[in-house]
Amino acid sequence: MIDREQVRKVAHLARLDLTEAEEVQFTTQLSSILEYIEQLSELDTTNVVPTTRAIEGSNVMRADELIHHADREAMLECAPDRVGDYFKVPKIMNEES
């Protein structure tokens, strides 16, 4: 149902470093989860509108009103690193192209 290559790809997209043992383990586990979910396809859903949310309701909105958030300093301090007014992040791109 799902192979090691797909597990590696998903892990890469989620920026997860998996060991070989974990890759094997997750391939088996993910496969059985997907197989379990797959049972749903036995149902006839021809006349069912695709669902995007599990709960009812729509159009929850707010007015376009400015509310200044006071705790700026606390928010900046949450980050691992900062320089003055800025958040500081590590190097983004590798040197090789």
Binding site: R62, D64, E65, L66, I67, H68, H69, R72, M75, L76, C78, G84, D85, Y86, F87
Partner: peptide, 28 residues
């Protein structure tokens, strides 16, 4: 608009960095 799409901080251009921030737009 006056405020952001999903939170009440200002959309003003050119302000001091990280003055128009809030827990929602920072993804807390």
């Amino acid at each position: 608009t006056q405020t952001k799409i999903f939170s009440s901080s200002s959309t003003e251009f050119g302000a001091t960095p990280n003055t128009h921030i809030d827990p929602i737009c920072l993804g807390m």
